[in-house]
């Protein structure tokens, strides 16, 4: 098999798997006569998607905005905390255990508290997205900073570099691959956060749409909602994977 052919097969594998799963799904629903309020066939879901495309688009946009706002906050705060933890042993000793403890709390449990403070609506969704996504960013940036090779630091220190110089010239560039890798994880978590908050405390967004559809027994519409979330998640992941590849090619030694 030629190299080009193998690569194109490799690239089309995910699509083949998806199409295969859909075909099996459709066939089993039809053959086993599964009622559509239990499991709608892909064709029904597609029909629901087309029928409600207007509201779905609106709600999806709303979800997307909340997610991006929470994610943006997560990047800022995650970077700041990561830099502080990664560049100071004292902050590390004080903050790291607290962060680990915080991260082990299921965030769903916090949503009612957030609602109490921020009310029902977008701020709650943004806050939940933020809470879920800042942690991996902070931990990754801190790891990148804390694992700088002492030899590299010696090169700068021997020239009289200050702590700030070390962070700017070595720590941060060195932490960038870790940072971008964490963005892929964080954006997915931000989606999870937004949708969770929307299902609990919102009157807009995909999460809300699904709760509505559920109470009205519109099962196909619920699945359409799940599909939309999945597509949004994959798309944003792909965007950040592409950015990562552009920004940190040196870390891959040009392998990819």
């Amino acid at each position: 098999m030629s190299e080009a052919m193998r690569r194109s097969i490799e690239a089309s594998m995910p699509w083949l798997v998806v199409v295969g799963l859909l075909v099996i799904w459709q066939a089993s629903v039809v053959l086993l006569n599964v009622p559509s309020f239990v499991l709608p066939a892909p064709t029904e879901i597609w029909a629901a998607l087309l029928q409600y495309r207007g509201p779905i688009f609106q709600h999806a946009t709303y979800t997307m905005i909340s997610t991006m706002a929470g994610f943006g906050l997560g990047i800022v705060v995650g970077l700041l905390i990561g830099i502080m933890i990664g560049s100071s042993r004292l902050v590390y000793a004080g903050l790291y255990p607290v962060l680990i403890g915080f991260n082990s709390v299921p965030k769903v449990a916090l949503v009612p508290i957030i609602v109490l403070w921020l009310g029902i609506g977008q701020p709650t969704a943004i806050a939940t997205a933020f809470l879920l996504c800042f942690f991996p960013i902070a931990v990754n940036v801190a790891t990148g900073l804390a694992t700088v090779e002492p030899e590299m630091e010696d090169v700068l220190r021997s020239l009289g570099a200050s702590r700030l110089d070390l962070i700017r010239k070595i720590g941060l560039p060195r932490a960038m691959p870790y940072f971008f890798a964490s963005l892929k994880v964080a954006i997915t978590l931000a989606f999870v956060g937004t949708v969770i908050a929307e299902t609990i405390a919102s009157n807009k967004g995909i999460g809300y749409l699904m709760i509505q559809a559920s109470s009205q027994f519109r099962v196909a519409l619920m699945f359409a909602g799940v599909g939309v979330i999945a597509v949004l998640g994959i798309a944003t992941y792909a965007i950040f994977a592409a950015i990562e590849k552009r920004m940190t090619g040196w870390a891959m030694r040009g392998k990819r």
Binding site: E151, D154, V155, S158, L159, G160, I170, P173, A251, R253
Partner: peptide, 18 residues
């Protein structure tokens, strides 16, 4: 402490890969 009048080439080149 380190002096800026020195230049040093370490045994391990430690060039910055980025």
């Amino acid at each position: 402490g380190p002096l800026s009048i020195t230049g040093m080439a370490f045994q391990n080149p430690s060039l910055l890969p980025w």
